[in-house]
Amino acid sequence: MNPRQAPEFPAWPQFGDDERTGLIRALEQGQWWRMGGSEVDSFEREFAAHHGAPFALAVTNGTHALELALQVMGIGPGDEVIVPAFTFISSSQAVQRLGAVAVPVDVDPDTYNIDPVTVAAAITPRTRAIMPVHMAGQIADMDALGKLSADTGIPLLQDAAHAHGARWEGKRVGELSPVSAFSFQNGKLMTAGEGGAVLLPDAETYEKAFIRHSCGRPRTDRRYFHETSGSNFRLNEFSAAVLRAQLGRLDAQIATRQQRWPVLQELLRQIPGVVPQTVDPRADHNSHYMAMFRIPGISEEGRNALVEALVARGLPAFVAFRAVYRTDAFWETGAPDMTVEELAELCPHTEAITRDCVWLQHRVLLGTEEDMHVTAAIVAEVVAETLAAR
C-alpha cells in the first residue's frame, strides 16, 4: 500500500488583485524609490497603526531591521545584548555586526521562548539590551521581561519576525516595548519576498532611524552632508505596495490559523512520543508562524530522518533552528568569553530543542480542519516508523 500523502495546502505566498493593483499603482506614480513615491510612507503609517505603535520605518529586510533598531538604541562595540540561544541566527548576528557581544541564554522548554529567569542571571554591568524573540508567533513572557526591564533600566528590543498581528493580554506588539523589529522575508506571515520594519516610539527616534537607514543623510539634504554613519536600508516602492495588500490579508489568515492550531495541537498531543509547542494563554492572539512539536529523546540524526520522511509524504516540514552558539558564524566576532560546552551547559533546553524539534510551515494551518487530521495521521505514521527503527 502506498504511504498516505499530505493534502494540497494553500500556496504561499498568497496574492491577488490587491497586490496587482498596488504594483501598477507604484509603477504608474513614476517614482520607484521611497524618496519620491508614496507607497513606503503609506505602508509605514498603516503598519504602525495596525501594531499599536506611533511610528514604523520600513527597511530592506528583518536582519537590517534588528541592526538598525540596535543602532538607534545606542548599542555599539563592547556592549552586551542578551538573546535567546534558540532563534534564527539573525537575532545574534545583528548584535555582532555592530561590534557588540551577543549573550545567548536558555529558553522555556514548552513555549520555546526566552526564559526571564535565565535573562536575569545573565545580566552584567555591560548589558545594554534584552532581545526576546516571539517564537512561532507566540509572544514571549512580556510581563516578566517588562518588569525586569523596568527594575534594571535595560531596554527590550522585540524580535517580532514571527509575530505580525500577535497580541499579549490584548496588547499589540507596538504597545509592549518602545522598539521592535519585523521581517517580510518570503516565508513570513506578510511578505514582499524580502523586507522589514522597525516600530518606533516617537518622531524624534523615527527621524534618527530614518537618517541611519538612508546612508546617514537627512531627507532634505541636497549637498551630500551625511550627518552620521549608516547604510542603505531603504525599502522600494514596489515592495511597499505589495506589503500594503499583504497587511490587508493578515487578520483573516491569523483567524484561520487560530482555529486550526488547537485542532492540530490536540491531535499531535495524542501521538505517542510527540509533544506540541505549548501556548501561553496570555498570548491571546497568536499569529502561528509555525506549527512546532518535539519528539523528546530522539537523536538529531533520527529527527533529521523524520523530517525527510515527512517531506517525502508532502508535508512542508523543517528541522528546528540550531542553537546559535553551535554555528561557526557565531564565533567569528562578538561572542562571549565562553566555550561551546560552557554555553551548552547553561542552555539544556535549547540543546534538547535543537536536537528534537520539528516545525511545519504556517500554510499547513491555512488548510481545512480535515487537513489537520490528515497531517496528524502522517506525523503519527512517520514518528512510529522512525522510533521503531532506532
Rank of each mutant, 00 (worst) to 15 (best):
E67V: 09
E67I: 10
L68G: 08
L70H: 08
L70D: 01
Q71A: 14
Q71E: 13
V72T: 13
V72D: 01
M73K: 13
G74D: 11
I75S: 06
I75C: 05
G76L: 06
G76H: 13
G76S: 15
P77I: 14
P77Y: 08
G78I: 05
G78S: 04
G78T: 07
D79E: 07
D79C: 12
V81I: 06
V81H: 03
I82L: 09
V83A: 00
P84G: 07
P84Q: 07
P84A: 11
A85M: 00
A85L: 00
A85P: 00
F86V: 05
T87C: 12
T87M: 07
F88K: 09
I89S: 02
I89T: 03
S90N: 11
S91T: 13
S91D: 03
S92Y: 06
Q93M: 12
Q93P: 01
Q93G: 00
A94I: 09
V95K: 04
V95S: 02
V95R: 02
Q96I: 05
Q96M: 11
R97K: 15
R97Q: 12
L98Q: 08
L98S: 07
G99H: 14
G99E: 11
A100R: 11
V101L: 09
A102G: 05
V103E: 06
P104L: 01
P104A: 06
V105K: 03
V105S: 05
V107T: 14
D108E: 12
D108M: 06
D108W: 08
D108R: 13
D108Y: 09
D108N: 15
T111D: 10
Y112I: 10
Y112K: 04
N113H: 07
N113I: 10
N113K: 03
I114C: 03
I114H: 01
I114F: 04
I114W: 04
D115W: 12
D115N: 15
V117M: 12
T118C: 13
V119C: 02
A120L: 09
A120M: 06
A121W: 07
A121Q: 12
A121F: 05
A121H: 10
A122K: 10
I123M: 10
T124Q: 08
P125D: 13
R126M: 03
R126V: 00
R126E: 00
T127F: 02
T127D: 03
R128H: 09
A129M: 09
A129L: 09
I130V: 14
M131W: 04
P132S: 11
V133W: 13
H134T: 06
H134Y: 06
M135A: 10
